[in-house]
């Protein structure tokens, strides 16, 4: 049974930090799943199966959250008492918003490109690069985590959210093109 009151960092026995040792995280994750996964209780009682499923779900959720730089930032902020309503919050950075608009227009025009799939693929690489650069900026904010820096982290997260949404849309368009083949 898992102690659900532990935060995700405690669950994996890791220090609370934005910069994370990915190998160590993966190792702890596997150690926990090895004992908790429902496959270990396939022939167990109903209670064992239920508990192992709940525990395994929690471990997966914790792992996905800490592994993904965007979710990890949001989680860390929430541990610091900043809960964001990302559906309502949006960045006011005009230059960034302008760039987003351009990226969005590019995506919308993918249909008319000679190689739409290749075009989307390049665009996605570009989106991923932008996210990676924000991840670097985010790490700096969490080093000392002063109130000003946490506010800055929040702003970076809003931007990450934008890019992530765009990535989803690109994926959807790509799926549409694949199906048309």
């Amino acid at each position: 049974m898992l102690d659900f009151s532990k935060n995700y960092f405690e669950l994996f026995g890791l220090p609370i930090s934005y910069v994370i040792d990915a190998d160590q995280l993966a190792e702890r994750y596997l150690d926990l799943q090895r004992v908790m996964h429902p496959d270990r209780y396939a022939k167990g009682s109903e209670q064992e199966r239920r508990l192992s499923m709940q525990g395994s779900i929690q471990i997966n959720e914790a792992y996905e959250t800490l592994r993904d730089p965007i979710r990890r930032a949001r989680y860390l902020l929430s541990l610091k008492g900043i809960d964001m309503d990302l559906q309502k919050e949006t960045t006011q950075d005009a230059a960034f918003l302008m760039e987003q608009l351009e990226l969005r227009e590019k995506l919308a025009g993918a249909h008319n490109q000679p190689d739409p799939c290749g075009f989307i693929s390049t665009l996605m690489t570009d989106i991923n690069r932008r996210i990676t650069s924000l991840v670097g900026q985010m790490a700096v904010q969490f080093e000392a985590a002063t109130p000003e820096q946490l506010e800055a982290a929040r702003e970076i997260l809003r931007k990450m959210q934008f890019l992530q949404k765009l990535r989803y849309q690109a994926e959807s368009l790509e799926a549409e093109l694949d199906e048309a083949l």
């Binding site: 926990l32 090895r34 209670q47």
Partner: peptide
């Protein structure tokens, strides 16, 4: 029987998690 054993099952799972985490 399963009802009576519930607390025991929980303790066993706890023990296995602790073992996994202490390496």
């Amino acid at each position: 029987l399963e009802k009576v054993c519930e607390f025991y099952v929980e303790r066993r799972m706890n023990a296995s998690v602790s073992k996994a985490m202490t390496g």
